[in-house]
Design a protein around this nucleic acid. Structure first.
Length: 487
DNA sequence: TCTGGGGTCCTAGGACCC
DNA sequence: TCTGGGGTCCTAGGACCC
């Protein structure tokens, strides 16, 4: 167990909504709800203005609409934009320490113990302040909350304590003082079911939990969870910060606007889902032996079925064939609201780490299917590592990724294309020694530009004031010439 | 118009092998 | 012929996280 507050937890505040507010001036200060707008959609992120009305993540969109005031903007997610903002932040954190664990698109742990940083409370506080300022500058105003502590548990609790734009450093020795007054739900791994069981026994705070005998916890929750709670309640958490993790499964699922009964239609959906999964397997250089389906009935009861083969595959037609066979075992006559296909028991079909470096986003589990390069139709399936990493297009999508305002359901005033200068995400603005520059984000009088060149890969991120002449395009450099790599 | 989509980890029971 | 125990693999379901 370490003593110093050497683990940071960085959590971007209401990230999806913050990116939307950054990219569209008229949304600032207004309630913004990002999520599925169709009938059965749920809220992915609500801006703090919307949270004031009781709107929160995972809430059905229909309910969010009832709670939100007139003038609220309802937007479908633009994952590509969020991912680019995420990459800016993760790269920045990578400069703080080589040991960064990205846990989701908007969250990461940073281990400071492997660096030469001053780990005193004052030193870590100063460093965290600097990181927060850099995040805001590099993202065009998206803020992050940071917690620093001697464990992941406390660091994460710290980042949550003073959200948004918060900073909490838990000094060495103060862990229990911070932890014990909190409600048990704040512990990672305590969800609705665990919370309810604890409440039944009168356990409401982490301090209460720390007084429950281990035997009782094992009784209530089983060996693993019981031991886990026992330790967390005492701030005993030595989970290391781990930078790379291997994917264990790949899946795709879809909830239909109306329940489906037609077997032909269900099979067709299975084919589409299978093709998506297989495409992502190939993109990640993976194959799997187990094919799973997930079926959610009209009444929300959910069943899964699985088969495991001797040989791994990444072939969409084979996955679909197995999935169809599994679905035939399930009674679908009452109507199906969700269908899912997954592949697990994964094995790299490329030897060693050929793909791990080329597809870091794969392990990060952030991206929807659209984020992944689509394998070429003729890609070898199940053979030696034939999928070309070079097929990845790292450039940001240009306007295509931004749905029309009507489609996104924006209800507030102000057009996307207002009077110049309008800086559109993905807009090609500059060519210089760093490569080709693309608008990454804009707002607060600043334009953030990411540079990329065919020879340099993703380049540095730089911020310019609006009106800066350096934002205007120059002639594209000749990439074929020597020394074109630049930067 | 109640309840998305991508994951991880754990448990329990049965099959199977030695 | 009266009844083992351990280990591993597989399936199904559930809790949880962002």
């Amino acid at each position: 167990m370490r003593g110093d507050p050497s683990i940071l937890h960085v959590d971007l505040d209401a990230m999806f909504a913050a990116v939307e507010q950054r990219d569209k001036v008229s949304l600032r200060g207004k309630p913004v709800v990002v999520g599925g707008l169709a009938g059965r959609g749920v809220v992915a992120t609500a801006s703090y203005e919307a949270r004031a009305f009781g709107v929160h993540s995972a809430m059905p969109m229909s309910q969010a609409r009832r709670r939100s005031p007139p003038g609220t903007a309802y937007l479908t997610p633009r994952f590509a934009a969020y991912k680019r903002t995420s990459e800016v932040v993760m790269r920045l954190l990578g400069e703080v320490s080589p040991l960064v664990e990205q846990v989701s698109i908007d969250e990461a742990y940073v281990d400071l113990a492997v660096t030469g940083h001053d780990l005193s409370t004052a030193g870590v506080t100063g460093l965290a302040r600097r990181i927060k300022a850099e995040i805001a500058a590099a993202t065009g105003g998206v803020t992050g909350s940071i917690g620093a502590a001697s464990s992941k548990l406390l660091a994460k609790i710290g980042s949550d304590l003073h959200k948004p734009d918060g900073l909490t450093v838990v000094p060495a020795g103060q862990e229990l003082a911070v932890l014990h007054p909190l409600p048990v739900k704040r512990l990672g791994g305590v969800g609705p079911a665990t919370e309810q069981r604890l409440h039944r026994s009168g356990v409401r705070t982490v301090g209460d939990l720390a007084r429950v005998p281990l035997d009782d916890l094992i009784d209530w929750f089983g060996t693993a969870h019981g031991h886990g709670l026992f330790r967390l309640a005492r701030a005993q958490d030595d989970r290391p910060v781990v930078s790379e993790r291997e994917a264990k499964s790949v899946s795709a699922e879809e909830t239909f606007d109306v329940d489906l009964t037609d077997p032909v239609r269900l099979n067709r959906e299975l084919d589409l889902l299978s093709a998506r999964v297989a495409g992502r397997l190939r993109a990640g250089g993976l194959t799997g032996r187990t094919v799973n389906i997930k079926v959610r009935h009209h009444d929300f009861t959910t069943v899964t079925r699985a088969v495991t083969r001797d040989q791994p595959t990444d072939d969409g037609r084979l996955v679909a064939q197995l999935a169809r066979r599994l679905l035939a075992e399930v009674d679908t006559s009452g109507g199906i609201r969700l269908l899912g296909v997954g592949v697990s028991t994964l094995a790299d079909f490329a030897q060693d780490d050929l793909f791990a470096g080329a597809f870091p986003e794969f392990a990060a589990t952030l991206a929807g299917p659209a984020e992944f390069p689509v394998a070429e139709p003729g890609a070898v399936s199940g053979g030696a590592g034939a999928t070309a990493a070079a097929a990845v297009d790292l450039r940001p999508a240009v306007d295509g990724e931004r749905p029309a305002d009507s489609e996104r359901g924006a209800t507030t005033g102000g057009a996307l294309e207002g009077p110049p200068p309008v800086w559109r995400t993905g807009q090609d603005v500059r060519h210089d020694e760093h490569g080709v520059g693309w608008v990454w984000g804009s707002g607060l009088g600043l334009v953030t530009v990411r540079f990329e060149g065919p020879l340099t890969g993703p380049g540095p991120v730089r911020t310019f004031p609006v009106g800066d002449p350096r934002l205007h395009p120059t002639d594209p450099p000749d990439w074929t010439g020597a020394g074109a790599a630049g930067g």
